[in-house]
C-alpha cells in the first residue's frame, strides 16, 4: 500500500458481531495535523460498519479541526481500507464457520 502517513487500526478486539467498532487513527506525519492538534498522534472514534461512510468521517475530522481539507481524501481512504479489511475478515470468519 502507498504510504500516506496515516494508519487506521482497531482500537478494540473485533468480536465479529457488533456493527459499531472502535477505530484508532495514527498520524505519523504530524504536519498533517492542524494548530493545537499538532502534538496529537492518535484519534479514536467509533465507526458503524453498516451505516458510516469513511469519507463522511474524514470530513467530520476536517470540520473538527484535526486535518486540512486537502488531507480529507487521504484520511478517508485510510479509513476505507481498514474498514474493507475488517469486513473481509468478518466474511472469511463467517464462511469458515459454515
Amino acid at each position: 500500500a502507498e504510504d500516506t502517513g496515516v494508519r487506521v487500526e482497531l482500537a478494540e478486539e473485533d468480536d465479529g458481531k457488533k456493527a459499531s467498532i472502535a477505530l484508532k487513527l495514527w498520524v505519523e506525519d504530524h504536519k498533517k495535523l492542524k494548530g493545537k492538534y499538532k502534538e496529537t498522534g492518535a484519534i479514536e472514534f467509533t465507526f458503524d460498519l453498516e451505516k458510516d461512510v469513511p469519507e463522511v468521517v474524514s470530513q467530520e475530522m476536517v470540520e473538527s479541526g484535526f486535518f486540512h481539507e486537502s488531507d480529507a481524501k487521504i484520511v478517508g481512504k485510510s479509513i476505507r481500507d481498514r474498514v474493507a479489511l475488517i469486513k473481509w475478515r468478518r466474511e472469511r470468519t463467517a464462511s469458515s464457520i459454515v
Partner: peptide
C-alpha cells in the same frame, strides 16, 4: 491528562491523544 475529547456536530465523538515516542520509532 493529554487526552482530549472532541464531539462533532453530527454527534460523533473523537478522542485525541499524543502518540508515545516509542510508538513512532516502530515504523
Amino acid at each position: 491528562s493529554a487526552t482530549a475529547q472532541v464531539v462533532h456536530s453530527a454527534g460523533r465523538k473523537f478522542i485525541v491523544s499524543p502518540v508515545p515516542e516509542s510508538r513512532l520509532k516502530e515504523h
